[in-house]
């Protein structure tokens, strides 16, 4: 049998190309290697190394000459029994949920308004998308500038509305909402863009059938528009949620590492930074990072399950 199958090969000798060593396989390997090495050192190694560190007591600043001390699950036990850790996650949730919900509702509403032909639509769209295209640090910087006690925001609030100024950055109960405001300003356009894509993909004949059979505006929204765009909206929500959950830059610029008045706006990401790079408790910081990762993976999984259900129409 083997003879039979190998016979044709020996009978028709292949021409040896001039650059014989330059085979397809060689090209594939040579193109992939740099990327693989980079990935290995920049992503895979830190991932594994930090997982190891999360089970040790070690500081990248203080213990440079000593080996990490294995402490088992001690870091995790400490963190999960520490009330402060839970507070950070609660604060993060208090930021993520309102921010994403407001972005969704606002973005969808604007998309509904924009989902028709009118003069200047293109220009308006471009204008609305600008916040999303800016660097988060830049956005946070100019909001910090506007939100200062005697900033432009308070000036208008007093002059136009005639109400007392708001302590955007220093009020204990306001700080987190200021963070929400900045995030909404920046990311509502994203929700709008995705909503618009969903809306324009709803087949027109569904609305025509609704017109022929006298469906109310509410019915059209509830039974045509909403079911058709829901899957796309869920994807947008997953994106935004994951992104907002690890929010660092805006919070850092607005409030610093401490997270504003009484830590009221210290998100989980800020806290990790504080533990790992301010206090230089590298082991504990790594453990915190892994806790965050597990939480976000769990959340994303729940949403993806909901998404699949929505797609198949239950």
């Amino acid at each position: 049998m083997t003879n039979l199958s190998s016979a044709p090969r020996t009978q028709t000798p292949r021409m040896r190309p001039r650059f014989g060593w330059f085979s397809d396989r060689w090209i594939a390997v040579s193109f992939l290697t740099p990327t693989m090495l980079l990935l290995l050192f920049m992503t895979v190694f830190p991932l594994i190394w930090s997982l190891y560190l999360s089970f040790t007591e070690w500081s990248v600043a203080r213990n440079t000459r000593e080996a990490p001390v294995w402490v088992g699950t001690q870091n995790y036990v400490d963190l999960l029994t520490n009330e402060r850790t839970w507070e950070r996650f609660v604060v993060t949730g208090q930021f993520v949920v309102p921010a994403v919900v407001i972005e969704l509702v606002l973005g969808f509403a604007v998309a509904m308004l924009l989902n028709r032909k009118f003069a200047g639509r293109g220009a308006l769209m471009t204008g609305l998308l600008i916040p999303m295209m800016l660097s988060p640090v830049v956005v946070a910087l100019f909001w910090r500038f506007m939100m200062q006690g005697d900033g432009v925001l308070n000036y208008y609030i007093e002059a136009v509305l005639g109400v007392p100024p708001v302590q955007w950055l220093t009020g204990r109960s306001v700080a987190l909402w200021s963070l929400v405001l900045v995030d909404v300003w920046m990311w509502t356009p994203f929700m709008m863009l995705i909503s618009l894509a969903g809306l324009s993909a709803v087949p027109k004949y569904l609305y025509e059938a609704a017109a022929v059979y006298r469906a109310s505006a509410w019915f059209r929204f509830r039974h045509i528009t909403l079911p058709m765009v829901t899957p796309l909206l869920l994807i947008a929500i997953i994106f935004r949620m994951m992104d907002a959950y690890k929010l660092f830059d805006q919070a850092f610029v607005l409030f610093g590492l401490g997270g504003g008045p009484g830590r009221s706006a210290q998100t989980a990401a800020l806290y990790i930074y504080q533990v790992a790079f301010d206090q230089f408790n590298t082991g504990e910081g790594s453990a915190l990072g892994y806790i965050m990762l597990v939480v976000i993976i769990a959340l994303a999984n729940i949403f993806i399950r909901v998404l699949n259900q929505a797609k198949t129409g239950q």
Partner: peptide
């Protein structure tokens, strides 16, 4: 308006409401 004409229309792609 279409709803006032007392007609029924069958569309090429049926145009059924997917979630009803």
């Amino acid at each position: 308006a279409p709803g006032e004409r007392d007609i029924a229309f069958v569309f090429q792609f049926y145009a059924l409401y997917p979630h009803l």
